[in-house]
Design a protein around this nucleic acid. Structure first.
Lengths: 337, 337
DNA sequence: CTGAAAGCGCTTACAG
DNA sequence: CTGAAAGCGCTTACAG
């Protein structure tokens, strides 16, 4: 009942080879023949079987995306959406593998049946250690990193520059006359991975140092197990003496609730305290939050194009590409009064 | 170089049939044999080829998820994540197809190579018209609806009851003594589909009607093309005379920015105006927003289980399942003062 | 440009 | 419980 290349071939009066070519390499088929085949295919409601194509052509048409936080997260959902937008039209499925735990992660890497079942692996926004990279490289397929802290071992990477980004923030606050600047570093509950948070707080400290003596950096580190990180942070902030006049957050996900809680506690933003986020994610604009904008959809789309290039055996123009971020200047920061 | 069932069979001293069975139906293989096979497989780094399994067993191990808004949306990202969590361990990939336009949507339905390339189709949160349902039914695979306004034609559906949910909201505001209650209905820019928004505002009106004469419903309809819906809504609200004392929003995505803007414009929530959202999505809790809570992860997971049941030929216990929602009572609503 | 033919790596009904 | 064997539906190198 289900039509095959054979059925189409019969109907169009050609061989199955020609039917196959019509779909896979239309340019290798005479236009006239192509039209006969397409007509026959349409009438039969024929579509190429992915499994058969895959088996024969030794591709799986699947791309694994490794994530360490749930998909239902601002960053990951945008990355996965953008990857899908680029890869689906080219015939590739994206398959997300959520690997929350760092502890037995290497074991998980082995359990995921990646071997010969995916055409490329994308690592989204977490650090992969040397051993793990080796495991992945043994698959002998392209390995693409998005916002990975260490680029070594990857076929190609793309991401933002944490340090340059934090420097934008620190510079801005410095220009506004702030001296006591605090960084709120809240580790995501679901991302118990060593790098990203540390990386950004390090970047903050380095940026403060580089901007000059006049900045007195402060760090608030919200433990992972805390239920209401913004309340924890605010308590810490209010007990600082002297109180910082500007606060940077690891992400908008921290900054936005903090903004709300500060308003509630009578601390005016930006009059009493300047506040800066990171990501320019949901609501940042509506809440007038000054934040670091990262072009996450473009990041995902370009990563998708890297995947395609590498699968097709083309070396990408830039192996480790760095995307610019910019400071979205809004009303949550103001000169020190 | 790539190990096949044949290689494993040779190494383990069994037939390929036994290797295959060890992976597909371990219970049909003697434990001793199973162990031999697994050892050989491990040593060779063997994994079953999905394409070959798929081709031979006439399954595709792919589930299409049709969405009308981007994945990078609160609802869709949670649904896709939950579906993946349930279906991936069972060997199924979920493939999201984003169908934004209602205009040539039917054509798109035909272009998506679903035929024989997916084992089930999930429609997430949009209305599918009669013709489209027919197209999908012709695929002759399970058709599952999540929060679909019309359940007819689906193999099974699961979702919340819009009317019951809005009734919770209206009842609550009524109990608090509010009479002039406004519903802000902002159509999502990316979801130019007829149903969901209309459905909920209808539900609101019906709920108002049913709760009694004393409620005077008001509707603000934010046009799709408006750039800053919350500003549009607030302008409309402030020009109402007499001004409504309570506002319900189509979703938290509207309510949360509105809450912020109201605070900014000196209108105190809840003292001057009560505010209710819908979804209980990101930040709703942190912002003390009274809202309708829908258990979106559970919804997605249960939909995944429906998919599995139907693929396996089992009729689900309930064909059209309705999940309860509840009113998350928080500080954005208060008695009329 | 097109066709005949081999074969990708599994699965499963059948026989033992 | 296990094996021999057929075949799922394509693709592609080769020949014409």
């Amino acid at each position: 009942m289900k039509p095959t290349t054979q059925d189409v071939a019969n109907k169009a009066g050609v061989s199955t080879a020609t039917v196959s070519r019509t779909f896979a390499h239309p340019d290798k088929v005479l236009q006239e023949t192509r039209e006969k085949v397409m007509t026959a295919a349409q009438e039969l409601g024929f579509t190429i079987s992915r499994s058969a194509s895959a088996l024969k052509s030794q591709q799986s048409f699947r791309i694994a995306v490794l994530i360490s936080e749930p998909v239902a997260t601002w960053f990951n959902s945008h990355i996965c959406g953008a990857l899908n937008d680029v890869l689906q039209p080219e015939g590739y499925d994206i398959c997300t593998y959520y690997i929350p735990d760092v502890t037995n992660r290497r074991q998980l890497f082995e359990e995921i049946p990646l071997r010969h079942n995916v055409d490329a692996v994308v690592v989204s926004s977490f650090g992969v250690d040397v051993m793990e990279i080796e495991d992945l490289r043994r698959l002998d397929i392209p390995l693409i990193g998005i916002n990975v802290p260490v680029t070594q071992g990857f076929s190609a990477t793309i991401g933002i520059d944490e340090y340059a980004s934090m420097r934008l923030v620190v510079k801005h606050l410095h220009d506004l006359g702030h001296h006591r600047v605090c960084f709120v570093c809240s580790e995501l509950k679901h991302a118990p991975l060593p790098y990203s948070a540390d990386l950004r707080s390090d970047a903050f400290l380095r940026a403060c140092h580089d901007v000059g003596e006049s900045i007195e950096p402060l760090l608030i580190h919200v433990p992972r197990e805390v239920d209401e990180p913004e309340n924890y942070a605010i308590s810490q902030l209010l007990t600082c003496s002297p109180r910082p006049t500007a606060v940077c957050c690891l992400s908008d996900g921290m900054a936005i609730p903090l903004l709300f809680k500060l308003m509630r506690s009578g601390i005016k933003v930006p009059q009493d305290m300047s506040l800066v986020g990171f990501d320019d994610s949901t609501y940042a604009k509506q809440f007038n939050l000054t934040t670091v904008h990262q072009e996450v959809d473009f990041l995902g789309a370009e990563a998708g194009r890297l995947v395609l290039d590498l699968i097709r055996g083309q070396q990408p123009e830039v192996q480790n590409r760095v995307l610019d971020t910019y400071l979205a200047l809004r009303a949550s920061t103001a000169p020190l009064s």
